[in-house]
Simulated scan of single mutants.
Amino acid sequence: MAGLALAGPTGAVLAAAGDVRALLTRTELDRAGALRSAADRDDFLAAHALVRLCAGRLLGRPAQSLTVVQSCGACERPHGRPRLVEAPGTGVSLAHARGWVAAAAADGPVGVDVEAVDGTDVDWRTAGAVCTGKELAAVRSDPDPRRAFLRQWVRKESLVKVGAGTLDEAARLDLPVYGREPPRWRGWRLLDWGGTQAVGCVAAREEMRLRLLG
């Protein structure tokens, strides 16, 4: 069975999810409430609701019946890789970035990332730290360097989330350059998507289906 990824604007996801506060745990609601920005709170709530909707569709279960928890091996704070209490064998992942959210569920490890495309310039110091020389050259020569860099970033972030590497060693994840679809990378399938406002990627061992909301 193929895995499933869902992504879309925060507003569209909140509209589709209904009463998101009825879906989330007290811990998640407290984390959302601690965020100062209303936009950040909406992104958080939408992403945590979307991962339940995504997993629910994959498993054939109501989103309300699924509990998402996060834990960190380095501290006691409730963050880190998410997991489903009721289906620990199902991998789940979520992401949010300035008005956009994404989630994925699969029968095994899965990682998803999304980034909003804006008019800001590329931070070349960051780009040099996370890209290989070949990738960096491709980003510099692209007509839209910012978008080209974000494409590589979301690919690498999705691989980091499945444990294929770390952001500290992102330049060692030698991915095909922007503009070329990489169906696999060392056994991982990479599924890209993107429009004029956001780009994203999901990484998994299995085939993934993608549905864009809104």
Rank of each mutant, 00 (worst) to 15 (best):
A2V: 13
G3C: 03
L6W: 13
A7S: 14
A7W: 11
G11S: 12
G11T: 10
A16T: 08
A17R: 11
V20G: 13
R21D: 15
A22Y: 06
L23A: 06
L23V: 06
L23C: 07
L24V: 03
L24Q: 04
E28L: 03
G33Y: 01
A34F: 05
L35V: 02
L35W: 00
R36Q: 03
R36L: 10
S37C: 12
R41S: 03
L45W: 00
A46K: 11
A47E: 12
A47W: 08
A47S: 15
A49H: 02
V51Y: 02
R52M: 03
R52W: 03
L53F: 07
L53D: 12
G56M: 08
L58H: 05
L59Q: 09
T67C: 11
Q70V: 04
S71N: 12
G73E: 14
G73D: 14
E76W: 09
R77C: 00
H79Q: 12
R81K: 15
R81V: 12
R83P: 05
L84Q: 05
A87K: 07
T90G: 10
L94I: 10
A95D: 09
A95E: 08
R98L: 10
A103F: 02
A104M: 03
D107R: 14
D107P: 11
G108R: 10
V110Y: 00
V110S: 02
V110T: 00
V110A: 02
G111T: 01
D113Y: 00
V114Q: 05
V117P: 04
V117T: 03
G119W: 04
D121R: 15
D123M: 06
T126K: 13
G128S: 05
V130F: 14
T132C: 15
K134R: 15
L136W: 00
L136T: 01
A137R: 15
A138K: 04
P143G: 07
P143I: 08
D144A: 15
P145R: 09
P145M: 07
R147C: 05
R147I: 05
A148R: 09
R151L: 14
R151Y: 06
V154I: 02
V154Y: 03
K156A: 01
E157W: 01
E157Y: 00
L159M: 04
V160C: 10
K161C: 01
G163D: 07
A164D: 01
D168N: 13
E169V: 13
P176W: 07
P176T: 09
Y178I: 13
R180Y: 11
R180A: 15
P182K: 10
P183K: 09
R184I: 03
W185A: 04
G187E: 07
W188H: 02
R189S: 06
L190I: 07
L190N: 09
L191F: 02
D192F: 02
G194M: 00
G195A: 09
T196R: 14
T196A: 15
A198R: 11
V202T: 13
R205M: 05
M208F: 02
M208W: 00
R211Y: 12
G214K: 07
G214I: 05
